[in-house]
Design a protein around this nucleic acid. Structure first.
Lengths: 168, 168
DNA sequence: TTGGAATGTCAACAAAGCTGACGTATTGTT
DNA sequence: AACAATACGTCAGCTTTGTTGACATTCCAA
């Protein structure tokens, strides 16, 4: 064969070789380390971990969200999330208020102090992202986002889409 | 101002807004879950974890690598890696042989059985990657790789580059 | 009104990271 | 030859963050 099993519509399928895919896999692995490195440094000072960061991020994104909702976004068990939330509440970074309609629910908000940490974390993470984006330009960034979205699970993509256009 | 602080060379900087960057951050977070989901399922059956997967992957990539080298690629402590390596060796997936030139070193290889698991894991991970790549096309994939590479730490990028073109 | 479903909390355990200390074999240096 | 440095393995103990199981509270529907 000269062009692979699929019908070629004029463009090469060389980007689908195992070798190319393996490079993508390794790039993803190594890049994720960079992605978390800067916030990790800030978190370490305060003795928090990535789980705290994720909780803070999505509470900031969806103020008033319930524990259950946060659970399904983060994809962990409620017991695991609860431990993190408890410390954040004790430390005064997150406020938990009993639901008005349904008293079983707890609505979560960042306190002013929590918002300060959120800002520090997301600034750090955005700085690296911005530098990368600026280096490669808008077309590459568009491709980046397309691949990531195509890589998500359907359920996960649902969460992502739901949040995506909320504030634009 | 009408066009932002930087000098515009004709193209918009809208892709550098905080909002766009936040979307990229969330896309990265959600996509990484998809990225690991398929191998995770296979690993769970065998009571292994992601740490085992990473070790197997890079031993496959660099047959005969030493423990020290693997350590610096993975970015963990030797105690942590050793725990994983020990179980893989006990289970007969990895072979550790004393170095010929330097007898202090141990050279790591996958056994045939280890290669079988490696293949299963990377097939699963590649399938998803391939589907994503195919959906978005080669230009988007090129952008994806560019952004990931720009996001890495310098040290990490060094490991990535060193491995990148070994087999093409 | 009562029993089941939903929401959230507490307890105990496991995986996988970490530091620190130490032993052993080997290599390199003085 | 003596000594320091390197590579590796291991023990002990700690932290973060995931898990399952048991339980209290609240809501809703039969």
């Amino acid at each position: 064969m000269s062009d692979g099993p699929q019908q070629q519509t004029g463009q090469s399928l060389l980007f689908l070789t195992d070798e190319q895919l393996r490079k993508g896999i390794e790039a993803m692995f190594f890049a994720y380390r960079g992605f978390t490195a800067d916030p990790d440094r800030i978190l370490e000072e305060k003795s928090y971990g990535r789980a705290h960061h994720r909780a803070i991020h999505f509470i900031h994104r969806s103020p008033g969200t319930t524990v259950n909702n946060l659970l399904s976004i983060l994809g962990v068990t409620k017991q695991s999330l609860n431990r993190v939330l408890r410390t954040l509440i004790e430390d005064g970074l997150v406020a938990s208020t009993v639901g008005k309609k349904d008293k079983r629910e707890r609505h979560l908000h960042l306190t002013p102090e929590g918002a300060v940490l959120e800002r520090a974390l997301s600034d750090a993470q955005r700085d690296r992202m911005r530098a990368a984006y600026r280096t490669v330009g808008p077309d590459a960034v568009a491709g980046f986002r397309q691949v990531l979205e195509a890589m998500m699970d359907d359920q996960t993509r649902h969460h992502y889409e739901a949040m995506k256009d909320r504030a634009e």
